[in-house]
Amino acid sequence: MKERAFLLVEDNPMDEALTLRALKKHNIANNVVVAHDGVEALDYLFGEGAHAGRNTEDPPAVVLLDLKLPKIDGLEVLKRIRANEKTRLLPVVILTSSKEQRDLLEGYNSGANSYVRKPVEFTEFAEAVRNLGLYWLVLNELPPATGETS
């Protein structure tokens, strides 16, 4: 079975590059899909727009979701993921710059599985990304997806 994807929703190209570098460095998540705003992320998940025709029966292992995003922000993306029958149980990790209480609270209230603050210090950041990859790709048992074949 093909390794399930890691959906990274990140609008900042620097952060995208750093996250990909950290994942590559630790040799995890070879199958990373990047969405650069909320609309793109939802299109990928629901097989619409630019991703029309994509097999939605093959959901990513985890969504790494930034909060401040163009068009549709992270919290709204999360709410739509939770509202949709197909993606209701999809693991979503908020990966963002702030640890403002209101972000944390709204994140968990909207159904986030986890909330990770991006550290400024790169080694810490790389460590955080590595832990996320290990946890969600290796340790975590996913809920049975519709159409799961394995």
Binding site: D15, L18, R21, T96, E100, K118, V120, E121, F122
Partner: peptide, 22 residues
């Protein structure tokens, strides 16, 4: 302002540190 600082001011710092490390 604080919200923006919390989110936006840290991102470039992460890049500065991250790419220096790279």
């Amino acid at each position: 302002f604080s919200y923006s600082v919390a989110h936006d001011l840290r991102a470039p710092l992460r890049s500065i540190d991250g790419f220096s490390q790279a």
